[in-house]
Amino acid sequence: MKPFSKIISIITPFDKANVDTDQIIPKQFLKLITKSGFGKFLFYDWRFNHDGQKKTDFILNDSYYQDSQILVTNENFGCGSSREHAVWALKDFGFDVIISPSFADIFYSNCFKNGVLPIILDIQNIKKLLQFKDKVELDLHSQTIIFGSESITFEIDLHRKIRLLEGLDDIDLTLKEDDKIGIFEKNSSRISIFE
């Protein structure tokens, strides 16, 4: 994974609660064979009409937000089925940060597995961010979001923070034990299937 760096971006205000993973990525798109490529199906039923035309009144179809990397939304984001595809779709669409008053558990941990930063903020700050139109500056290192003349700090588990900053995924961490795996294989040679 790429190390997580400072983000300067406008916010996509998405003032909805209880957004479930079936809305984030509907189940007819689960048969894809890559982690990438799910972005075009993100919020499919909200973004497109039955004839496949873009709905002009849906915020993600507004070109102003095209390069936004930050989604600000309302409580219980990512509830429902545990599919990892939901995070793949958000990431592929371009979101590196999701800010919400609360997240569903599995969705929250799936974010970290895929290099997406989920931030929990209180409702007051969410309201302020939903209104803010200019670019904000988000720094994971100092755990701050600077918007206009204001600045907020956010909480995050230290281990998870380090992993994002260093761009380490589960496999990278295991590969730090590579020598131990090698020693294990040497000491008790495994029986190859095709000797």
């Binding site: 994974m1 496999i171 795996i181 294990f184 294989e185």
Partner: peptide, 26 residues
């Protein structure tokens, strides 16, 4: 950390796993 002696694979749950390997050059 547990060593795995046998890994069996089929078509439905493996495509994204291989994709992940490719993206990370593993």
């Amino acid at each position: 950390l547990i060593y795995i002696d046998r890994h069996l694979i089929h078509e439905v749950t493996s495509p994204q796993a291989f994709d992940g390997l490719r993206v990370n050059n593993r």
